[in-house]
Structure formats: C-alpha cells, structure tokens
C-alpha cells in the first residue's frame, strides 16, 4: 500500500504540468487580435434597444444559458436545503445578539444595500449592472441581517420564502413559453416588448437569486449556539 502511494506521488504534478503545457500552447496559438462576436452582438443589441451588450447576451441572445443557469442554482438550493441538519429551520439566526455598533451599522447598511440592489437592476439594460450583481448585493444583505441577530420576520413563512425562491425561474420559463405561444420560438420575445419583459424577468430573478444565495449560505452555516455546544 505504501509502495503504491510512493509510486503514484508524482502523478498529480505530472498531470498538472501536462495540462499547463497544453492550455498554454492553446492560448498562445490563438490570433492576437480577434473581433469575436463583438460586431454582430453590437448590431443586434442596438436594434433591440439594449445598450448594455452583456445584458443583451445574457437575457436575449443566449437566454437559454441564463435560464438553465438559474435552474442549476435552484437545484443546488433545493439540494442544500434538503441536506440541512435541522430541517425545521429554513433560515437560522447566526448570532443571538449584535453589538450596538453592528446593530446600528446594520440599520444604516440594509436600506442602503436595498436601494443599491434596485438601482443595479434598473440600470442593467444600459450600464454595468443587472440581475446577478443586484442579487449578490441582496444575498449579502440577508447574510448581514442574520449575522447581526435579526431573524426572518414572522409574517414571512416557509411558503413565502419558497415562493420567492421559485418565482424567478417560473416567470422566466413562463415568459419563454408565452413567447412561443405568441408565434415566435422559445425565448424569442416579440418585438417591442423586449425591454419590458427583460426588466420583469431581471427584477424577479434578482429576488430569487438573492434569496437563494442567502439560503445557500445560511442553511449550512453554524450559528452561535451550535459553536458554543449549547
């Protein structure tokens, strides 16, 4: 057993060096200057009236990628929620109490972060921003709230939380299918409704992704009481 281990010891280094050689060679063999899809995307984005080209690619030209990506994120969330040690709690408080400074900071930061998040969705069609960036801010806000001892409000029940998690993906699928019913292909938004539909999808996606990022963290993190062994 020990001999076998000693024999196999250099294998990872060799595989890694071979990988490095192949990828380096591949990268260096590419042309130094390439337009890629810049031209066609810029043209199509201008026609669609969406000046942020990355947003246009994400939600329109390669909508499939984004749709499936949200599905992956939702699947992971469902899996992580099912793996919880204590399935009664959808969200656990990470801390029993916050110090006065942290509590005051949280009260200032949370509304600010919420405004930033809405702003990021709104400007997403023309400037850097969009659902994912906004959702990252929203998810971090949820984690901050939990770290500073704020619990999920009583009126937000399990069903409400799960609906928030699901609404983004369901709306996205719904609009994709409706576009097909309206005469186009799947995900082919009818002309003239593009910007509105994308804003609707982005807003709801932000809520869902934010909730899912927060729950991915909170459902597997250990709180105060667990760490103290109480």
């Amino acid at each position: 057993m020990r001999d076998r281990e000693r024999l196999l010891a250099p294998v990872p280094v060799l595989v890694a060096l071979a990988t490095l050689a192949v990828v380096t060679r591949a990268v260096l063999s590419l042309p130094r200057s390439a337009e890629g899809l810049y031209g066609p995307v810029a043209e199509a984005a201008a026609r669609a009236g969406i000046s942020n080209r990355v947003t246009a690619v994400l939600l329109d030209f390669r909508g499939y990628d984004t749709l499936l990506e949200i599905a992956v994120l939702m699947l992971a969330t469902v899996a992580v929620l099912s793996l919880r040690e204590d399935p009664r709690q959808l969200y656990r408080r990470l801390s029993e109490r916050a110090t006065p400074v942290l509590a005051a900071l949280t009260r200032i930061l949370v509304p600010l972060a919420f405004v930033v998040s809405v702003h990021l969705v709104w400007i997403g069609s023309s400037q850097p921003g969009g659902a994912f960036q906004a959702a990252a801010v929203l998810g971090a806000t949820g984690i901050l709230l939990s770290l500073s001892g704020y619990a999920r409000p009583q009126w937000v029940g399990r069903t409400a939380m799960r609906s928030i998690l699901a609404v983004g993906l369901l709306t996205f699928i719904g609009i994709a299918v409706l576009a097909m019913v309206a005469g186009g292909a799947l995900l082919e938004y009818p002309e003239g409704t593009r910007k509105t539909l994308m804003l609707v999808i982005e807003s709801l996606l932000t809520l869902s992704i934010g909730a899912s990022l927060a729950s991915l963290f909170l459902s597997s993190a250990s709180g105060d009481s667990e760490r103290d062994g109480r």
């Binding site: 042309p31 200057s33 337009e35 810049y38 080209r53 246009a56």
Partner: peptide, 10 residues
C-alpha cells in the same frame, strides 16, 4: 482581443 473596441460581450 478586439483592438481598441469594447471587449467581446459573449
């Protein structure tokens, strides 16, 4: 690699 222009968004 898009010389001078914005980067390729894809």
């Amino acid at each position: 690699r898009t010389a001078g222009a914005d980067p390729d968004p894809v």
